[in-house]
């Protein structure tokens, strides 16, 4: 029930600190949670992707993550430096449905925080939880190393409970993935992100 009650807490905090204050707060919570989860190291992409499938990595705290191993990201030399990952269901969807059945309507605080983030930080959020979630993944990625290199995370696309989709043109271009491929993934998945070796010279990067 604490998940449904969270909306009331956010309403309270918007009154005190404004939507921008809640965005900063959520981002700090993302930093804190990531810092408490410790470091991980994997020999290579194969062992990392197996760990993702078996829900052994810090990313697995979010729920079921699918490594899209047919969608590799390559560097200028053609070496694989990352992959796309996707979640069939957004972590916050069960809470939205629980709120619908327990309370009856989604709090306007959710939209206020989402809009604030989309307008001033990164136009990718479909609910207030995306604010925390994007920062959490970015910080977690720094603590995970594959073949001795730490990772960087790029949130590429999201689909909200009402069907609204968001694609980050900036991040899609950064990892050199065709936007149409990402859009097609949103038919089956609600959250798509890329993990790449930090500092890799990506193909097509200028």
């Amino acid at each position: 029930m604490i998940d449904v009650a969270l909306a009331s807490l956010i309403e309270d905090m918007i009154e005190k600190a404004g939507a921008e204050g809640v965005v900063e707060f959520w981002q700090r919570v993302g930093d804190n949670l990531a810092s408490r989860m410790g470091k991980e190291a994997y020999l290579g992409w194969t062992s990392f992707n197996v760990a993702i499938r078996e829900a052994r990595t810090a990313f697995s705290i979010e729920g079921e993550v699918t490594p899209l191993t047919d969608m590799a990201i390559t560097d200028v030399d053609g070496d694989v430096v990352g992959y796309l990952y996707a979640m069939r269901q957004c972590c916050y969807i069960p809470t939205i449905f629980r709120t619908r059945f327990a309370v009856g309507r989604i709090s306007p605080a959710d939209k206020a925080v989402t809009d604030e983030y989309n307008e001033n930080v990164h136009n990718i959020a479909v609910c207030n939880f995306c604010v925390f979630h994007e920062r959490f993944r970015e910080e977690i990625a720094k603590n995970v190393s594959v073949a001795g290199n730490s990772l960087a995370c790029f949130l590429l696309a999201t689909r909200g409970w009402s069907g609204e989709t968001k694609i980050s043109s900036k991040n899609v271009a950064q990892v050199n993935i065709n936007e149409d491929h990402v859009r097609a993934l949103l038919r089956n998945y609600e959250c798509v992100y890329a993990l790449v070796l930090r500092g890799a010279r990506l193909k097509g990067e200028r």
Binding site: D3, F25, R28, N32
Partner: peptide
Amino acid sequence: MQDSNPFVDIATHLFLEDLA
């Protein structure tokens, strides 16, 4: 009713810790 994703519960607990 559908169960929540425990990640949302965890994030809320961290939210409360930060608030404290």
